[in-house]
Design a protein around this nucleic acid. Structure first.
Lengths: 339, 339
DNA sequence: TTGACGCATGACAGCGCTGTCATTCATGAT
DNA sequence: ATCATGAATGACAGCGCTGTCATGCGTCAA
């Protein structure tokens, strides 16, 4: 624990023969400082190994270079992709990420927002559009860009990047019907608001098709492959006539595939399987699994992009949202017609 | 962007009829303040909606309540589990997480360490034992607890929680031999230091068994299920006699399973498959996949635990490390003997 | 009664940086 | 020659909190 003697701005200023404030400017607004001064300052910084103190900067300026990210859970692998996008988007910006998880609890989310806002972050990224009224008010009052990710909705707090889960699931269900499946069911885990909207999309599609049965098995448990196995078992116990499943996400779909194989149910002939998100493994599976592809990576990247533009002053208007859409990727697991 | 009038410590002090410093103490060391004063202060904080300014706290005290986490990549799903453990371990501590990714670059790692240290974090968690000399020196000079996670090694910088990847892989390879496989091969992606050590463990086992062939296919690409498919194809092209594979991780193993099925190679009879980490999906697969189980969740949790004890003053000595070990979980994918 | 001690509290200064002026000096228009 | 203009730089104060003393007061042993 050998303490390094702390080097401050003034030390650099002394070495570069300018005033501390000029060093500060050289760091923040290099173009406001003459070329010669800047050169001397850069050299001094290098020689002394000066590293700015972010706390002092934050206190004096009321700003930090941190983007707060608030998501329900880190174990949900959808967020891993989003985080990667965020990380990528941050490259070269000098910004950092502070991470908080709500565990799907509205009050935890409120607390987190309060804590994050108290740090005066450069921006905030929050998952979803279903914040509590309190949380919403806090975010509306934030004096930094706020991006809601995962879905697009009618009234973004500030900015939003996502897709319509309702439409995505509806397209998945429509695909199953188009492939000739007569009795599609829905399997859902971790029924968060996005999952609820997927379920609604599924139901809407079935209603449009004049099917009035409602073969749906859901659980609040977090999603997993094993859970997919169990849910298929439940489903078949209650709706034995089921000939296709739309899964809330890809983990479940994979579980369904394994369980079908265990039971010698032939995919896609006896059972069609469609996932959601189109995780990389879907195309590698045997048979390859149909899924509704979402671009989680871009979601993160663009969320950061919006914040960065806002910070650069060229920012998008309040209320803008980016709909990344989705793509249905048909594969062998639903190829009853052509297969 | 309606600015809320900022409430400061002194506002609370005024309302509670004490001096600011007493409010500060009530927040940091509640037991140093009389019960009555504390009650008045708590009420004032609540009524005014006071939220402390972490930047000011950090500047004045030279400490923050942030734990820095430095990992190679967020897309590697091993780290998702570790992050969950960290998150869980942080519950109720008032500590937050700042995340940085090195992208497997030593210089990025050094920069990240410098930036994080400049914030005077409450603790630092870094992945692996293979920091560059510069990075190592920086970490040795840190005046906060530093925990190296993922593996245990001979000389931790400060604290370490992990396992021996060498021994884990060796056990996996030994299992394959014990099951009667005669020509096991190794498949590896994203050959980071941990993967290298797994490969070394595999080789050591084969050498001990007197096998001097070296059937190994690796790639620096990041791991994925599809990559598992491709690597199996490569492997069989070069070593057609292979009758079992030890995979660097579970994604690859899953890909191998799918590819085997595509080629009508029977698992476990014609090909044994063993993964590494024992991700949840392994037990759900058909057939269930053997894997070397590692406890990523505990790794994160215990890393935080060590930091918290250190902060509480009861901390473990410098140089202590926790070996979480591994467990070989035999499943049908290697049940040539009994299956 | 006296002094020593411990507890609760407060005064003061300063952490390292930046916002807001003010200043200097060279430039070009009048 | 005169003044307005703008670029580069600097002085000053203060962001909100906490470390380090110092203080007041009640308690207890001698």
């Amino acid at each position: 624990m050998n303490k390094t003697p702390k080097i401050t701005l003034s030390d650099v200023a002394l070495a570069a023969d300018v005033s501390p404030i000029t060093v500060s400017r050289a760091l923040r607004n290099p173009d406001k400082v003459s070329v010669e001064a800047r050169a001397r300052i850069d050299r001094a910084i290098h020689e002394l190994g000066y590293v700015p103190n972010p706390a002092a900067r934050a206190l004096a300026s009321g700003r930090t270079d941190i983007i707060g990210v608030i998501i329900p859970s880190v174990s949900n692998n959808v967020f891993a992709d989003v985080m990667r996008g965020i990380d990528e988007g941050l490259q070269g910006s000098g910004l950092g990420v502070q991470l908080g998880t709500t565990r799907y609890s509205p009050t935890t989310e409120e607390d987190l927002i309060r804590v994050f806002l108290s740090q005066r972050p450069a921006g905030l990224i929050v998952a979803g559009h279903d914040q509590s009224p309190v949380a919403r008010r806090l975010l509306e009052g934030a004096d930094c860009p706020v991006v809601q990710i995962m879905e697009v909705g009618p009234a973004p707090i500030d900015l939003a990047v996502g897709l319509s889960h309702f439409q995505g699931a509806r397209a998945g269900a429509a695909h199953l019907l188009a492939q000739g499946y007569r009795a599609p069911a829905f399997l859902g885990a971790q029924m968060d608001p996005r999952s609820q909207r997927r379920l609604a999309g599924f139901r809407a599609c079935l209603a449009d098709a004049g099917l009035d049965d409602d073969p749906v098995v859901t659980t609040p448990e977090p999603s997993s492959v094993s859970l997919g196995c169990r849910l298929l078992a439940d489903l078949l116990a209650r709706w034995p006539m089921t000939d296709a499943v739309l899964c809330n996400n890809d983990d479940l779909a994979l579980g369904v595939l394994f369980e079908a194989r265990r039971r010698n149910i032939r995919v896609p002939v006896q059972l069609g399987i469609c996932g959601f998100n189109d995780h990389e493994m879907m195309s590698a599976a045997e048979p390859p699994l149909t899924s509704v592809a979402t671009d989680r990576f871009s979601m993160g990247r663009q969320a950061v992009g919006l914040i960065r533009s806002r910070l650069a002053g060229v920012g998008p208007d309040r209320g803008s949202s980016v709909d990344l859409g989705f793509r249905l990727i048909p594969r062998a697991s639903t190829a009853r017609r052509d297969g």
